[in-house]
Every structure is written in C-alpha cells, then in structure tokens.
Design a protein around this nucleic acid. Structure first.
Lengths: 413, 413
DNA sequence: TTGAAAGCGGTACCAT
DNA sequence: ATGGTACCGCTTTCAA
C-alpha cells in the first residue's frame, strides 16, 4: 500500500477523494470510527469551497450569494451534516456551552433557577453544563477548573456563598482565570468577589416576611437557617433582625437556630429550638424547605399550624401552595432569575460591556394559611397542646403583596 | 514545505515568556484573546517535546520516564496549564461530556437521578449537560441533535417515554445517529427503542403498593396519573390493575384519572374524580407529586387523610417523609439509578460490550401515615365530613418492605 | 523512551 | 462573492 512517490514521505494519499473517512452513508459501518460528514464534504457536494460552506453553516454575517447559500444548505441536508462543535470551539476559542453551578440540583429552588437558565440558553442554541458544589468551596473551585478547560460562553454561580476568606481565595482565583480567558462569570443571589449578579433583595424580603408576622401580633419569632456567614442567610437574618428592631423587639439569641437549608435541617432545628426553652409563637424559616421540615417536626409534637405557631418560609417553591397548611412565604422568581443570569452573560458577550454589579428582581409576600395571630394562651416547649382561639388563618385564595422597592437597581449594593 | 513554525504573521511572539497572557492581573484591554498556556509551552519549559508532554498530561498509558513525567507535571503546574478540551475532543473524536435529558429538572425525582449521574460522572472527570424535553418528542429530538454535535461520551435519557410511534420515529433516528458515531445511549426508566436501561420494576412496585391498600381492606381504589401511554404510567397502571384483579375487584374506569404527573395534576385529578361520582376509599397516585397535589385538593374539601381516604404515592421523594401526613409510597432509589446509568455507559465505553437490555434496582414499600383501613362509614363526593373510626394510621417510624423479586435481572424484560 | 510532524474539522484571513 | 489555506491545541503514528 505504501508506495512513496518521490515527494511523498509519509505516503499520505489524501489527494481529494482518498479520505479514509466514512462518506455520508455508511451502510456497513464495520469500522468503529464512524465519523459524520465534514464541512469539506458538504462543500464538495455543493461545488463550493469549505470557506463558503462555513460562512453559510455557521450563520456568519459574511455576504454569500443566495445561490451558494441554497446549495450549501441542500448539500448539508443531504449529507445529514452536523457541526463538530469541538472543531468550532477550538478555532473560535469559545464553546457553545454555559456552565451552571448550584449547591445541589436536588433543591427545588435551585432547579427552578437552572430551568430558567436552560430555557434561555437553549433558545439561543447553547447547552448547559450543571454541576453541584454542596456549598463546598473546594468542589466549587474544582468544577470551575473543569469549566475552564471547556472555554464556555459563560458561567453562572447559583446560590449564596459562604463568607470565608480563606476558602474563598482559591475560588476567586479560579473565577479570575475564567475571566482572563474572556469567560463572563455571573451569579444568581450572591455578591461576593465582584461578580455581577441578579437576585432578589433578600434583606427587604426577609424584613417584609417578618413584618407580616409582627403585624399579626407576633414578637417572639424564631429564625431558622444557616450558616449565618452564608450571604443569603446573612441577608435574610438582617431583614429578620431589622423587622424586629423596628418594633422595639430585640432579637433573642436563643431563637436563632443555625441549621442546614434542607427539610432535615428544618426538622432538627425544631428539636434544638425547643431544647432552648425560649418561648416563641412564630417561625421565620430562611427557606421553604426549612419551613416544611420545621412544620413536620412541629406537628409530630402535636403543635398546630398556625394555631399554636405561625410559620413563614422563603422562595415559594411549587410545593408551598400544596403543603398543609399552605405556606405563607416570599415568592422569589426562580426561573426569571435564571433567565436574567443568561441575559447578563449575553450582554457581556455581545460586547455591550460587562454587566452591572447587581440587579434586583421583585419579590412578593404570598400570604397563605400558615400564619395567623398568636393565640392568647401562652405556650412553649412540649406544653403545646391547647392552642386557644388563635384567630382565623389568612383568607384563601392567598393574598399577595408585591414589593416594588429596590426594584431594578442597576448598580445597587 | 510550509513549516508550521516559521513565518508567523499573526503576531505570535513566542520567545519563552512573551505570551500576551495574564500576569495575575489582566490590565483590562491588553488584548481580546487571552489564551492560557498550551501544551507546547509546557513542553518547552520542561525541555521536552509536546508529544511527551501530552502523554503525561493526558494520563496516557504510554511509557514515559519518571524523570520526564515529573518535569512535565512541574512545568504544567508552574504555567497553570489547563487542557483545552475542544482540542482534545477534536482529535480523539470524543468529548468528556455526558448528556442527560430529563422531562423537567424541576421534578424532584428527576433531579435526584441527575444528581446521581453527576456524582458518578464527575468522579470520573466528566461533566454533565442537562436538558429538558417536557415530554415532547420534538424537543427531545432537538436536544439529541445538539448533543450529536458535542460528540459526548454518552447520553442518558431519564424518565418514561410516550408510546407514540409517529412521534417516536424521529427520536429513534436521532438516537441511531448518536450510535453511529459510537455514542452509547442509555436510559433510566424507559425501555422503548432498544435502549439499554436501568429501572425499578414498575409493574411489581405498583402492584405492591396497591396490594398494601387491598390488604388494609380497600377495594375502591382510584388511579391518578397519565397519560396512560407513557411507559412508566402504563406499567404502574398495569400493577394497579393486577393487584385489583388479584382479589377479584375489577377496575372501575371512572376511578382511573389521567392527569399530568405534577402537583397541579394531582389537584385537578381530584376535582375530576369527585365529578365522576364513583365512590372510593383510597388513591394510588403514579407519583408522589401527584399524591401531594391530590392530598392538598382533598383537604381543601374537608377530607381527612387517611381517615376518610388513604393515599399511596410512588418515588419516595424527600418531601414524602415530611408531608402531612407522611406519605406511604414506593421508594425508588433515584440517585442509584443515575449512578447505574453511568455504569452502563462506562461499561460500553470500556469495550466491555454494550450494556444489557434492562437491569432492575430494588424498590421498597415505605408505609407511613397516609394509609389506614377504610372507615366503616361509607362516603364519597362532598359528603365527606364525618370519617368514623377508621382505625389507626400506620405505626411510625415507618415500616418498610423491600421487594427483592425481580432484582438484578441482567437481561430481563 | 522520546521527537517530529501530520492532521482532527472548522474558521478567517488574504487574494482573486 | 469565493477560493485557497494557515492555523486553533492536542493526540498519535512513525522514526530515531
């Protein structure tokens, strides 16, 4: 086979037909490497050059005659041509991928954000890589590094971040490396590291939620969620604290329970709250999940919601409207946040300059049946048995209040 | 001729330090193409050839001296080298990406499966692309095509499939195209199209769940979930039907409500079920979500669970243990399924041959408090007010039964 | 065991 | 408007 002509050292045939590849239709795909048609195959069939074919197929704005365009498109269809994105990414230095990192895709709020991001990105022809960091800076950094090698169009960090300078440094460096490669990094709901981000005004929202309890007459309100050095939790705690301070009710440290933002976390928090032996008539949970967990634990102890204890959540996941009782909570537009994150990236990519430091989406207090005025009978700990006439649960269908303050602050902090 | 080294008009200084790259702080507009170090840079710094560097960096099994290996690794570290996966994918014809398609990542069961897949894939150094198809064959096909251009290491289809030959054909073709490129396609919980898959024995599990209700004395049991031509729903229906038939209780068509597998779907189903005016004492929901939705709608109508109506779900999502009442359901190992899907792909990739047609993971009936014997007082429709002494709710902590039948059938159908 | 060089499949620059 | 072609960064023969 190797018949080296004079100037053909490697005996590389290749002339113009000798490609050892599969031509369009390999009925007998005996070999294991069955590549599809390449852009050169398309060009050849269309009787044009690869350059022209590329200009058509890549949707370039470069001028191409209608005739050529049509022939290329037809040839591509005939050959079942599919762009090799690795090749494209190699030459353009950018892949049509956007990376998303959540703490845990299993969390209903995060999956909602991811869904919004996916819908937006897919509409623009990109795909979304999803990774979990379990709120671990090390995992986050590792994932960012994996993303670096993909040269994605953008990266979205979803969810709050722990304020831990030591752990944050490597993350900051990984983010910087991405940026050095021209990859925009944005966030949903966090604002450390100078990352442009979209979020809801957590402080105001939490204050709004707790003010609702205060308005109902509650003063001894517990805060469930942690850790407190998480940007998200910290802000919600700040709002909680503000609402209380506002009416001259100091925060009772014993009512602040730091617990993971999960169902389990919520349940465990109740045990600790009760062990603290500090009376309370209401609970503000940093997350709906925590609220559900708390409610379930409360109920196990014979406590009735909202007769004995009122509960407010945060996020308004779908389940909130279907739980027992339906949960009063802060509606956060999860999907819209994901969508907005994509816009942040797209704006950056389109050369419209880097995104602003922060932008806010409106939240809403949705009053359902888990909150009511405190009952007259004072109660705490296991002694919760009789609830007294605690007043009517909120009217249903749920009322809702949209909070417009702080909306669309383009560069707020 | 045309040595790729000399005449370098595109401004590639190249000396040994002159790369216009970052020096920890990119002075902003220094240039738009800030590439990282390439493998050639690493090789040069190590005083070796790119080939050798590649053999070290790509974890090739090719023999390399310890000395060389060490120098390459050090150089890579010094330069902060990160592999360009596009380049690697281009030459190897395979990217280190696995594609996952779910109906909706927002569904807690699917996100659990995805999480398992991610954990397994990430452990092997791959990343996961996640897309949603909303149970729409068109979207599914579109996503498969996008994946085709990525040349992923494997593709996982998650969730049941609608048995609709017309809509299925394009999907089958897209799957075939993937396979033609050597991309293994596997599934979690579906078994159409000859796709190797892992799942739980839905028929047996549903039969187990409904048998539990039957054993409690229920005969008029409603089935909630649809559409019935979904592989998953069909199987669960089959199990439901079998359990009933087994005790000589024929299926009452009026008690079979086809409804989307969502919270809303569950709620709406109740309205229709009641409108059907057929008495029932228990409900078997094809999904926990449906069960939650149903319970919420039932409660709105003043119906007590399980006093007036018993409810069984399917999946055992985390919430099932925290709902009111805690839900009796079939535990499906979501994460394990995702993990198993990855093993199916990995086995294929490792040349161990294509995966078997089907493999089953064990399920478990978890009895919690949403089921009890039917009350003596007969009731239906809005007349549900008095429940009578319906017997004790199931003991808590929940009992659980592991179903070992049909376990690990390597090639079962 | 290492080096040299040929591409993988696109894209984009430079002529034409 | 099109064609020719030099790369992108990496892996992988083939030679040494």
């Amino acid at each position: 086979m190797t018949s080296p002509r004079d100037d053909d050292p490697q005996g590389e045939p290749d002339g113009q037909e000798g490609r050892p590849r599969r031509g369009a239709q390999g009925p007998e795909a005996a070999g294991h490497r069955a590549h599809g048609a390449s852009i050169r195959d398309v060009a050849r069939l269309a009787g044009l050059s690869p350059g022209t074919a590329s200009r058509v197929l890549s949707g370039s704005s470069y001028p191409v005659s209608d005739d050529a365009r049509q022939r290329v498109e037809e040839a591509a269809r005939a050959l079942n041509y599919v762009t090799n994105s690795a090749a494209r990414a190699l030459v353009t230095g950018r892949s049509e991928i956007v990376g998303a990192i959540v703490h845990d895709i299993t969390d209903p709020f995060f999956s909602g954000v991811v869904r919004g991001l996916q819908d937006a990105a897919v509409a623009d022809g990109l795909v979304v890589l999803v990774g979990n960091d379990d709120r671990d800076a090390g995992k986050l950094e590792g994932y960012l590094t994996m993303l670096l090698s993909q040269k994605p169009t953008g990266v979205v960090l979803i969810g709050g971040q722990l304020r831990d300078p030591a752990a944050t440094l490597p993350v900051a460096q990984a983010v910087q490396r991405l940026r050095d490669q021209g990859v925009p990094v944005v966030a949903v709901g966090r604002y450390e590291l100078d990352i442009p981000h979209v979020t809801v005004d957590d402080v105001a929202a939490a204050e709004c939620a707790v003010s609702h309890l205060v308005a109902l007459g509650h003063r001894r309100i517990a805060f469930l969620g942690g850790p407190l050095n998480s940007t998200t939790v910290q802000d919600r705690y700040a709002g909680y604290s503000a609402a209380l301070t506002h009416v001259g009710a100091p925060v009772d440290e014993r009512l602040v329970i730091q617990t993971p933002l999960t169902l389990e976390g919520g349940s465990q928090a109740i045990a600790r709250l009760i062990a603290a032996e500090a009376p309370f008539t209401a609970i503000f949970a940093a997350t709906d999940e925590v609220a559900f967990g708390a409610i379930s634990a409360l109920r196990e102890r014979g406590c009735r919601i909202p007769l004995d204890v009122s509960v407010v959540g945060f996020d308004d996941v779908v389940m909130a409207a279907h739980s027992d009782p339906p949960l009063t909570t802060i509606h956060v537009p999860a999907r819209a946040l994901g969508l907005a994150a994509w816009h942040l990236i797209a704006r950056d990519e389109s050369g419209a300059g880097a995104a602003p430091g922060a932008s806010h989406l409106p939240f809403e207090l949705v009053v359902r049946a888990s909150t009511a005025p405190p009952s007259e009978v004072f109660k705490h700990e296991h002694a919760i048995t009789v609830g007294g006439a605690g007043g009517e649960p909120a009217a249903s269908p749920s009322e809702s209040l949209t909070w417009t303050a702080g909306l669309d602050k383009p560069n707020g902090e």
